[in-house]
């Protein structure tokens, strides 16, 4: 497998030093231009290059409007870049596929299906045999902590529960990469913390590659191996920071950890500086 050299590669360090990690997603000089309603071109993403290692938890952090979600959609294959290309395991991404599973802020559950029906959707679509799919789905629902809610409809669940279902639905078709688009953005602070903990616990089990979009600095630092800081108009990568904190992480311990605090403060300071510099509109 050929690793395309990219701007960020110098920052990349293997997550598990014992065996060298290989790149799973390569983003190569991607730019995205949108037309605004007044028919003017808006450069949402400008020449982004980024390599994501297998089994890494990578956050894309930036202010709203910096194109971080667009970047995620390009990796998902939902949006094609205006120029440049994204690759998954060396193959160009041309559309969505079950190797990359999205989890959206809006949950995007099928309202006409129950919790069980939503989780079953992927395996059925993949042609998994019914008995097997059912067993797996039930196990997943239990794993995300919703045992007993199998026959509930999404409208009967709270926001946090909906996002748990959405996660289970995506995990059910075994994607190699999880694409999480501000998944906890619509939740209250308490629920958010619980889901962050649970997400890490689930992630620890099989360490899938995660690409996680957020605008919360401490969420990014708490969860990630690597934080990609983006700046706005046009959306560019400012800096990529490795988060060298031990795992498994406990939030209560981490909050007292001087290194954690340092990461958070450093990142926030960097964003403040760029705000003061004031990029022209």
């Amino acid at each position: 497998m050929k690793v395309v050299p990219s701007r960020s590669s110098e920052w990349v360090r293997p997550v598990t030093p014992q065996k060298p990690a290989s790149a799973i997603i390569e983003i190569d000089h991607v730019s995205q231009v949108f037309q605004t309603s007044s028919r003017r071109d808006h450069l949402a993403l400008s020449d982004i290059s980024l390599t994501i290692e297998e089994r890494a938890f990578v956050s894309i952090l930036g202010p709203s409007g910096c194109g971080k979600s667009t970047l995620l959609y390009i990796v998902g294959g939902f949006v094609s870049p205006t120029s440049g290309a994204a690759k998954m395991k060396g193959k160009a991404i041309t559309g969505p596929g079950p190797d990359r599973g999205p989890v959206f802020q809006e949950f995007a559950l099928f309202p006409w299906k129950t919790v069980f029906g939503n989780v079953m959707y992927g395996p059925r679509q993949q042609g998994v045999r019914t008995a097997e799919a059912e067993a797996q789905s039930l196990a997943l629902i239990e794993m995300v902590g919703l045992k007993g809610y199998e026959n509930f409809y999404p409208k009967e669940l709270s926001g946090g529960m909906k996002q748990r279902v959405a996660l289970a639905r995506t995990l059910a078709y075994h994607p190699e990469v999880l694409l999480m688009d501000e998944p906890f953005g619509a939740l209250d602070a308490h629920t958010r913390t619980r889901l962050q903990n649970d997400l890490l616990n689930i992630w620890e089990r099989d360490r899938k590659t995660v690409l996680f979009v957020t605008h919360s600095v401490d969420e990014a630092v708490f969860l990630s191996d690597k934080v990609v800081m983006m700046s706005k108009s046009p959306g560019r990568i400012r800096q990529v920071i490795d988060i060298d904190l031990p795992r498994p992480r406990r939030r209560s311990e981490l909050l007292l950890d001087a290194r954690y605090q340092e990461y958070v403060v450093d990142i926030e300071r960097m964003f403040d500086e760029s705000d003061e510099a004031g990029s022209p509109p």
């Binding site: 998902g76 559309g95 079950p98 999205p102 679509q125």
Partner: peptide
């Protein structure tokens, strides 16, 4: 129909023509 419903189904491996019946129609 919410775009992200369609995206969710596509990511789960639903072919384009099936999206019409499996997502657009029920939604």
């Amino acid at each position: 129909v919410e775009q992200k419903l369609i995206w969710s189904a596509m990511a789960a491996g639903t072919p384009r023509y099936e999206i019409l019946f499996k997502v657009v129609l029920p939604a």
